[in-house]
């Protein structure tokens, strides 16, 4: 199958006077519609890798291809557009806009991309809210929701533009184990239903094992890469 994400010879070095190399000549590809997990100790470079894939950070050397296109020479605007249309993000600290309601947060990527919201799109936003189980609280301000609810809003927001890829950095990092389970079930459902490619960073091996592929990063290099046969 085609690789929707291809990382070629990526190095990442932080600092100018005291240089800290976080990633060492990394090469990895991710197949379309796959559900991948990345594990590793803190400081291993897994978040840096995810941020580089998500174009939130830039590699010191090497190149990243998203859907066949190199992101190396894209302008800031082109990158913003790529993020808006192709990529969805879920972070550990959900990052909702506290000034807006849940449903408005979900609609935000759409408004940033296109401006006006059609009836169908609004309908889809409501569907997504139902899908993540937030029908009751969708008009609450983001701050007036529990952590798990906020995370689910962030997931609905990541889905709103129908992105081909969703990148999640410890999406359940600050949730209790029951909620963690619910959120993972949700992500798997999305993967099946919308054919979305997932890359999820987690420190929870039980969760990681549910993925189609587990990649372990250690000291900035790939230590382990296990594909399960489905």
């Amino acid at each position: 199958m085609d690789n929707i994400i291809q990382v070629n010879n990526v190095d990442k070095i932080y600092g100018k006077t005291i240089k800290t190399q976080v990633l060492f000549d990394l090469n990895i590809g991710f197949e379309k519609e796959s559900f991948n997990s990345i594990i590793g100790q803190s400081g291993s470079g897994k978040s840096t890798l995810l941020n580089i894939i998500g174009t939130l950070d830039t590699p010191t050397n090497g190149e990243v291809f998203i859907a066949g296109k190199s992101t190396k020479n894209m302008t800031k605007n082109q990158l913003a557009e790529l993020r808006g249309k192709t990529l969805g993000f879920i972070f550990q600290f959900h990052y909702l806009l506290p000034e807006f309601t849940a449903i408005e947060n979900v609609l935000m990527p759409l408004r940033i991309n296109g401006g006006k919201i059609s009836k169908e799109q609004l309908g889809r936003a409501h569907e997504l809210m139902d899908f993540v189980g937030l029908t009751e609280v969708k008009d609450n301000l983001a701050n007036n929701m529990s952590g798990g609810q906020q995370q689910r809003v962030a997931i609905a927001r990541a889905l709103m533009n129908n992105p081909e890829i969703i990148l999640a950095d410890e999406p359940t990092g600050n949730l209790d184990s029951d909620t963690t389970e619910t959120v993972y079930e949700l992500l798997r459902d999305i993967n099946k239903k919308f054919k979305t490619t997932f890359i999820i960073i987690t420190h929870d091996r039980r969760i990681a094992e549910k993925a189609d592929r587990i990649i372990e990063i250690k000291d900035g290099r790939i230590n382990l890469d296990i594909k399960k046969n489905i």
């Binding site: 605007n77 993020r83 993000f89 990052y95 806009l97 506290p98 000034e99």
Partner: peptide, 16 residues
């Protein structure tokens, strides 16, 4: 700045 970071992550352009 946090909100701006979020908006940028979901695709807002610098100009906007």
């Amino acid at each position: 700045s946090k909100q701006i970071g979020i908006l940028k992550a979901v695709g807002i352009k610098d100009r906007t």
